[in-house]
Design a protein around this nucleic acid. Structure first.
Lengths: 249, 249
DNA sequence: CGCCTATTTGATAGCCGTCAACCGGAGTGG
DNA sequence: CCACTCCGGTTGACGGCTATCAAATAGGCG
């Protein structure tokens, strides 16, 4: 029996949006790669550097961040198992942001040239990559709306909802509850707030019965109400999208 | 002599990052398209709809926006002549944000299927599209940092710098000055501020000699200082990038 | 058990929003 | 030509949301 490639999570994710035939998915699974263990806070990609390989998150969490001159930190996305961490800049010369491990993480490194060449040779795979990137771009735009136009409480609730839906989609969540391995300071960095205010808002949400917390495990007693409070409309995640016949022959 | 295609601006923009051979650029120029005139505030793409065509901005300005439930408006990008307005969601089923004309604008509409088919048939063009989208994504991430972690004055200065550099790159700017056809309310919607506060900050910047204004024409007496005040580092625009030999054969 | 980090809490300050009024230029109609 | 209107820009007073500062508590790990 075939060895199970570390990349099967990625294939599974891509296939949710674009139908890949057996050859396509095998071509991805057969990509050369090495698997590495990262500890929390390890850099995976450093801003300014030219990544030699595209990391794919096998297990654990990671985040993308940018820094302001005054030291302010902005987390621009949360990445969960199955996410490719460099597809968004696969064709750019240097990284315009850093990627760090949020927890201990297992990561497959795929050489960039192999990935680029695959995209050039197999249009359907290029198409799958494009859909993946376009959904990521949509998420970033929603974050912009979140930070630019929603108050602190709503912002945080929105983040919790997004992560929940994305984890659920990867079958990583049980019964409306999951562990969000972020400190309150990191939640602040993701929402443009301070850790102190994040704390107050989380307690608010808990007091109002919208969430429960045990250490960093979060549960949603009433998803419907939380969604409304969070101004959360999952359309921007394009979860329903599945192009069975993506391209005219 | 060949008719000059309305799409030559797009080709010129793509070629700044990826070397296209004559066949590639001709294939783009020969894409079927119709040119339309839009008035300020006309919708070009509506959130939730499935665009039938990809609009390419020939002249004039446009912006992308999303709305919060409470009516809050967030502008998530400014588009200038030469920009393709749907490449970012070419493979998605429905638009996750709206695009509106900021000024009177002339726009070429290219049928989506033709564009998709071109991307599938010509890997180098798909590559050019990918680079274009990845730069747009980088800009969106910088906006996230801008709104999440910089104060009002810095934010606005940063926006002014970005538009200046992007216009300059398209040869649409003269001597460190240009017309920014946005009301102060729109600048606020782009920076997560109110029009009142935008006004105060613009006056501040002017009082400090960092900008001059005559109606909506903005000039920068001291670009070096302004860049510092704006915490503006143009790396995220990837302006220097030019892959002469993008892909191993 | 002790250290270290994360969380929690309170007091105070400040940036920016809100509300409201006034100004000013461009277009319109008399 | 001038009055009128309208929208956008300008200004001031005030309030509130969130940051800042500081300290206490709790939790994880040796």
């Amino acid at each position: 029996m075939r060895n199970v490639s570390a990349l099967h999570l990625l294939v599974r994710k891509l296939e949710k949006h674009v139908a890949l035939d057996g050859e396509d998915s095998r071509a991805i699974l057969d990509l050369p790669h090495t698997v590495h263990a990262y500890k929390a806070f390890d850099y995976i990609i450093r801003e300014g550097e030219q990544p030699g390989a595209c990391p794919v998150l096998i297990s654990g969490f990671a985040f993308r961040q940018k820094l302001a001159e005054d030291g302010g930190r902005q987390i621009v996305s949360i990445q969960i198992p199955g996410d490719a961490l460099d597809l968004q800049q696969l064709f750019l010369d240097y990284a315009d942001h850093s990627v760090q491990a949020l927890t201990e993480a297992s990561i497959a490194l795929v050489p960039r040239p192999a990935l680029r060449e695959l995209a050039m040779r197999r249009p359907r795979i290029a198409h799958a990559f494009a859909v993946n990137n376009q959904i990521d771009a949509s998420i970033t735009r929603e974050w912009l709306l979140n930070i630019g136009r929603r108050d602190a409480r709503t912002r945080i609730a929105h983040l919790l909802c997004e992560v929940a839906v994305r984890l659920e989609r990867q079958d990583l969540v049980t019964e409306y509850g999951y562990e969000l391995p972020m400190s309150q300071e990191q939640i602040g960095d993701a929402t443009g707030l301070t850790s102190v205010h994040v704390n107050r808002m989380l307690r608010d949400l808990e007091r109002d019965g919208l969430i429960t917390r045990h250490s960093r495990t979060i549960r949603f007693p009433d998803w419907t109400v939380l969604k409304r409070v969070a101004d959360f409309n999952p359309l921007y995640l394009h979860v329903g999208q599945q192009s069975a016949v993506p391209i005219p022959a």
